[in-house]
Design a protein around this nucleic acid. Structure first.
Lengths: 144, 144
DNA sequence: TATTGTTATACTCTATAACTATA
DNA sequence: TATAGTTATAGAGTATAACAATA
């Protein structure tokens, strides 16, 4: 209640959103360099272990039906494959192929080199920023 | 180049994006409380002076043709009106009505009270965060 | 000839509901 | 009866192109 009238809060929000927009743009650019639709790149980036479709929907915070199309696309490109889950035959595990593993690494490098100049700050400031934002994120669940 | 391999950079990006997602969610919630579509709320939030459609497209970073529909909606609700520009009769100025002015203020209050708990940090940390993010945003144009 | 705003159209993204095969 | 994944469909959101009025 005491913070509602603090003029720094909306200003802070504006800055966060502005930086986030640029980071997203850099991800789009990285995906574009690999000629991947953003949705496919986003899934690729988050895929390490073989993972059920359902879990991917949660990670990407989208509907499960949407994941089908994204995985279809990645499978057509030979970057992932669907495997039967050993325990539950309803479940399909999405797993990286060797090529998918390589492309995923490329994507990561491309993205990181894109955002490095954006987040370029003196080392001490970077650490402080990391700590503060970490605190904010840690508080996200309890806020409201 | 020296920062490309700094593991803190992707971590920092992840945090910024996570906070931004939450801020966006709070804006959606504030728009919902006023029963406004997000796009209309976003335009309302940025409208102060009577402004040409074309400029609004730039501010919202979307196509001019899209602005037409958004303004249509706000006009139907009686929150804005189109005025002829005195100097150039091709231009239409979008201006807040009295009711629009009130609703805009409500929206702002609702949003600010929503994000206050998200960005709640000790005062000194808030100022440091503001300064660092301000530096990042200031550097956005020269980065790349 | 160029520009503002509009219209018509299409494409992307995403969600809902109905379906199948398992459990 | 409930769940994982798929399919079909529909609704947002947004862009492109063609157009009318004006510069």
């Amino acid at each position: 209640m005491s913070q509602e009238s603090d003029p720094l809060t909306p200003e802070l929000a504006r800055l966060v959103l502005q930086v986030a927009d640029r980071l997203r743009a850099e991800f789009r650019r990285a995906a574009g360099r690999l000629e991947l639709p953003v949705a496919q790149a986003a899934l690729l980036a988050r895929l390490e272990e073989p993972t059920p479709m359902r879990s991917l929907a949660e990670v990407l915070s989208c509907d499960a039906s949407h994941v089908t199309g994204i995985v279809d696309g990645l499978e057509r490109r030979g970057l992932v494959e669907r495997r039967a889950a050993p325990k539950d035959r309803r479940v399909k595990l999405v797993a990286l192929t060797d090529e998918g593993c390589r492309r995923r690494a490329e994507l990561g490098e491309s993205y990181r080199s894109g955002i490095a100049p954006v987040l370029a700050l003196p080392e001490e400031e970077r650490r402080a920023l990391h700590e503060s934002l970490g605190r904010v994120v840690a508080g996200l669940d309890e806020a409201r």
